[in-house]
Every structure is written in C-alpha cells, then in structure tokens.
C-alpha cells in the first residue's frame, strides 16, 4: 500500500516572486472549450494562471485545493460548466459543495475565502473566460502573496523514484 510521493516540478520552478501564482483547475468540456476559443480569438489572459485540465470539476476536493495552497499558490481558480449543463450532470454541483467547505477551511487558516473562486463558464465562451481570469488575477494581486511558503523538505527526483518501486 506504499505510495510514491511526487512533488510537482512546476511549483518549484524559479520565477519572479512578485508575480502571483495562481492554479486553475479547468473542466475538460465547457471551460476548456472556452480556453480554446480564447486561443482561436487570440485573447490575452493573465500568464500567472497555471491551468490544470480535469475531466470534470467534480474531480476536485478539499484536499486537492489545499495541496495547491500548501505548495505556495496564492489563489486557486476553478473553471467549470454552468450548473445544470455539466457533462456528467452533477459534477459542478459537487465542486460547489467542495468550494463551500474549502472557503471555511481557508477562513480558519486565516487565508480568507477570497483566494478560491469558482467560475461557471458558458460553453465555449472565450471572451467571458478571459475576462474572469483577469479579474481573479487582479483580485489575487490586491490580496498579496499567500503567507504560506512552501519549503520542500526533500526532493525526490523522478529517475531516483523509478528505481525505488
């Protein structure tokens, strides 16, 4: 039952510390098609948002979002379908339940509930998506950096890990 831990390399890449770090979880259906549309239209959105594609926003849970904060994220943006038009019917509703819990946990930790935000993106609406990403990035910029500094206790290199299991 042992499991190999992996520390995401992306979070440890040296970058401009004054820039916010935002993790965006993107639903494969409504929101991702919106991103593609934004790309086709050559719309600009904040580069500090690091997007992670999921099959459905229902995949996220409190642990996953808290993990992003643990690794030093300043904000987490969740991009999904509007309630009622989820590809899996209930995924985005589950995500909303998780977000309610996450906000309470962040409040307890003193980070404030504003650092996490769920956006319901109408199918393939690139303009809307780019606008909302930029608004969120602006909000995080105003809130300032997260007090959590991720210091990796140890670095497991991928090749070293492969020899272990």
């Amino acid at each position: 039952m042992a499991r190999k831990r992996k520390i995401p390399q992306e979070f440890r890449i040296c970058r401009d510390e004054s820039e916010p770090r935002i993790v965006g979880f993107v639903c494969n259906w409504g929101a991702y098609s919106g991103l593609e549309m934004a790309g086709v239209k050559k719309l600009k959105y904040a580069p500090s948002v690091q997007l992670i594609r999921l099959m459905c926003l229902g995949r996220i849970n409190t642990g996953l979002v808290l993990k992003a904060f643990e690794f030093g994220a300043d904000g987490v943006l969740l991009l999904g379908c509007p309630s009622g038009s989820c590809h899996y019917e209930f995924g985005v509703d589950r995500a909303k339940e998780s977000v309610a819990q996450i906000k309470k946990m962040l409040n307890l930790l003193g980070l404030g509930s504003k650092r996490v935000h769920l956006v319901e993106v109408p199918l393939g609406d690139g303009d809307f998506l780019a606008r909302r990403i930029n608004t969120f990035e602006k909000r995080i910029r105003e809130l300032g950096p997260s007090p959590i500094k991720y210091v990796p206790t140890q670095i497991v290199l991928a090749d070293q890990a492969a020899t272990l299991l």
């Binding site: 499991r3 409190t62 642990g63 808290l66 272990l164």
Partner: peptide
Amino acid sequence: EQGISGQCTHGGALQAL
C-alpha cells in the same frame, strides 16, 4: 526519506492542513 508514504485519506486534506 526515500519518498514512500502511506495512502492518505480524505484526499490528503488533513496532511495538506
């Protein structure tokens, strides 16, 4: 130390906390 750990429950939320 070798990067092996148990399976965390509750999506790892408590460990992250």
